[in-house]
């Protein structure tokens, strides 16, 4: 059985606009799956729907089985024990995901206490280990407030919080979009390493084909809430079947090619004349 099994998921707003339509995909234990889509594709709504975090104004239908538990329509008290040990999310903007008025150490300690019941010295040690796992110098960071950290450090803290309860599925929703390229690279390396080390499953959500292709084995492409194509990353990028995927891949390819064909002497004309 899959760790996450989404079948016929539809999400609509109160006045009937469809944000996600009849979406099905699955993530097996230890597997890495990507969701690719541009703005308005419903990818973030999907990430919220699979953890039961949808806005009250949104209505989900269909089935989302997380480790065998039905998420759609389940009351919050049933979902709470699943969030953490079963699945955790890392969001795009670490600054809004963290509490600005609480020291980082306490924010990491909270889920550790809740899910692993640690207190006192054990808790302090667990927080230090959690920070160590995301390659942050423990002592100083634990005493800092979120605004005292850089964007990359904040995202590492968010990852540490997400990992505190040892989830079996990590959902990363555009985790590097707000970051500088070199920092993005480091965070992707970190996620890569952590997912492998802890044998977690990963649901990686992004608009960036190159980033998804680096993180996932299989992908599902979303266009306006509809899954238009799924398959192995290599196949989808090498031979996209659906018109939208073709457009997406062609655009990404154009930009990627520009990196190789940029003029080497200042006198030659600018990049490839294409499109």
């Amino acid at each position: 059985m899959s760790l996450l099994e989404v079948a016929g998921l539809s999400v609509r707003t109160r006045d009937g606009a469809l944000l996600v339509h009849d979406l099905s995909f699955s993530v097996d234990a230890g597997e890495r799956v990507g969701l690719i889509g541009e703005s308005g594709s419903g990818k973030s709504v999907t990430s919220l729907a699979v953890t039961g975090l949808l806005d009250a104004g949104l209505d989900a239908r269909g089935s989302v089985l997380l480790d065998g538990h039905q998420i759609v329509g389940a009351p919050d008290r049933m979902l709470r024990p699943l969030r953490g040990p079963c699945a955790s999310i890392v969001f795009q903007e670490p600054l809004t995901a963290l509490d600005p008025l609480m020291r980082v150490g306490r924010q990491i300690a909270e889920p550790i206490t809740r899910h692993r019941g640690l207190r006192g010295r054990d808790l302090t040690r667990a927080v230090a280990e959690a920070l160590d796992a995301v390659a942050l110098p423990g002592e100083r960071i634990a005493r800092s407030y979120p605004h005292e950290l850089s964007g990359g450090q904040r995202q590492r803290v968010a990852i540490a919080i997400a990992l505190a309860a040892h989830p079996r599925l990590l959902i990363a929703d555009e985790p590097t979009t707000a970051l500088d390229v070199t920092v993005q690279n480091e965070i992707l390396d970190l996620l890569d390493h952590l997912v492998a080390e802890r044998d977690m499953a990963l649901l990686f959500i992004s608009h960036d084909l190159a980033v998804v292709s680096r993180m996932a084995q299989r992908v599902t492409v979303l266009e306006k809430g509809v899954a238009v194509e799924s398959g192995s990353v290599g196949d989808v990028i090498a031979a996209p079947a659906h018109a939208y995927t073709q457009r997406l891949v062609a655009s990404a390819r154009l930009l990627d090619d520009a990196l190789d064909s940029a003029p080497s002497s200042s006198n030659s004309p600018g990049g490839g004349d294409d499109a």
């Binding site: 084909l209 190159a210 980033v211 290599g234 990196l259 190789d260």
Partner: peptide, 21 residues
């Protein structure tokens, strides 16, 4: 610069660009 960056910083910037397979 993209094909042969001369400084360490430019090199790390270029290396960090996510590329398509």
């Amino acid at each position: 610069i993209l094909s042969s960056p001369t400084t360490d910083y430019a090199r790390s910037l270029v290396a960090a660009i996510p590329r398509l397979p």
